[in-house]
């Protein structure tokens, strides 16, 4: 990473290319939609598409802050484990501590934020590389979830709690509204605020950003905390949808999340990326899963496809980038 020459930085934020990348993705998405639709008549129905939106919310809520993190050149592998930990604490604090459910939800969001904050504080203060820090907490948070729950599940939540995960609001799945709001807010923050532009500056050249007086550490701390918080939110939505709490919830989410972000054109090397790209990436991953499922491919085979997509899209993006830079 350190050997990337400086002059690239200026070229990297060329808007026409960003536009092109997302247009390209959108066109592929459209072709995929039509292709899958013609193969299976159940695919291209409003019901199915809305239901896919419901299913993609949990991963989507995490993919938005992950876009921020990857733009700064970082990564967060612990998100799946935070989902597990928050889900367990939601159920545990409600059932065992006897918290009223709204308080339990607040508690589980708080713990998500704390988990992310711990990642952020060690990454910024001790300078542990994000990859290693979040591998360590990937083990730690999952271990806490397993230790606290002793592999027991919690079920039997009150009826109103299932609204967010299973009901509709104005004809659209309730949790999809959450995702839509989160998308709009994060897109505006990334594109229109100093905070958002700081993320690009850090990803392009962290040292330069520091010397320009940008609050690099504070910004990083905020995005890792946000990532944990959103993972906590995702856990609540997930528990509400599947009506039970288990310590293995969220296993493998990091794959879906990172694949969606990278597929959406965010560079794994940092400095490039948009929320809209991530949204298209999310849609593609979910439709891929759904399309494969409808054509009779089993769930385990779809993660093969997602893994391949992750590697290939990184390959294509990095070779495009290299060609543009004439390396």
């Amino acid at each position: 990473m350190s050997e990337i020459p400086l002059p690239q930085a200026a070229k990297r934020v060329m808007p026409w290319w960003l536009l092109r990348h997302e247009t390209m993705l959108a066109v592929i998405l459209l072709i995929a939609l039509i292709g899958l639709g013609s193969m299976n008549s159940r695919f291209l129905t409003l019901d199915n598409l809305l239901n896919q939106g419901r299913l993609t919310t949990e991963v989507g809520l995490i993919a938005l802050p992950m876009t921020f993190i990857i733009i700064t050149g970082g990564i967060d592998l612990s998100v799946g484990s935070i989902v597990g930990l928050c889900a367990i604490l939601l159920g545990y604090s409600w059932k065992v501590f006897g918290f009223p459910l709204p308080l339990a939800i607040g508690f589980s969001l708080f713990i998500g934020g704390v988990a992310g904050f711990l990642n952020g504080i060690v990454i910024t203060r001790v300078k542990v590389p994000p990859l290693i820090m979040t591998i360590a907490t990937l083990a730690l948070y999952r271990g806490l979830a397993e230790g606290i729950s002793q592999a027991r599940s919690v079920r039997g939540y009150p009826e109103w709690f299932y609204f967010i995960g299973q009901d509709n609001l104005f004809g659209v799945p309730a949790q999809l509204w959450l995702l839509l709001i989160a998308i709009v807010v994060t897109a505006i923050v990334l594109d229109r605020t100093t905070f958002g532009r700081t993320l690009y500056a850090i990803g392009n050249n962290e040292t330069a950003a520091r010397f320009s007086g940008l609050p690099v550490d504070r910004v990083k701390l905020i995005i890792y905390t946000l990532s944990g918080l959103m993972a906590g939110l995702s856990a609540c939505v997930l528990v509400s949808r599947v009506t039970t709490t288990r310590s293995d919830m969220g296993i493998g989410y990091e794959l879906d999340v990172i694949a969606a972000v990278v597929l959406g054109g965010t560079s794994i090397f940092g400095g490039i990326g948009t929320i809209w790209g991530t949204v298209v990436g999310l849609a593609m991953i979910q439709l891929l899963k759904n399309g494969l499922a409808l054509t009779g491919v089993k769930g385990d085979a779809t993660i093969v496809v997602i893994g391949t997509v992750l590697i290939l899209s990184t390959l294509v993006a990095s070779s495009l980038q290299r060609r543009r830079e004439g390396v």
Partner: peptide, 22 residues
């Protein structure tokens, strides 16, 4: 091809895991 090890091995993890089970 200069792709970070974490991306390649994360992808391979899911290819191997999914492939084996399916």
């Amino acid at each position: 091809l200069r792709i970070p090890a974490i991306v390649v091995t994360l992808g391979m993890l899911s290819i191997l895991k999914g492939g084996l089970i399916s």
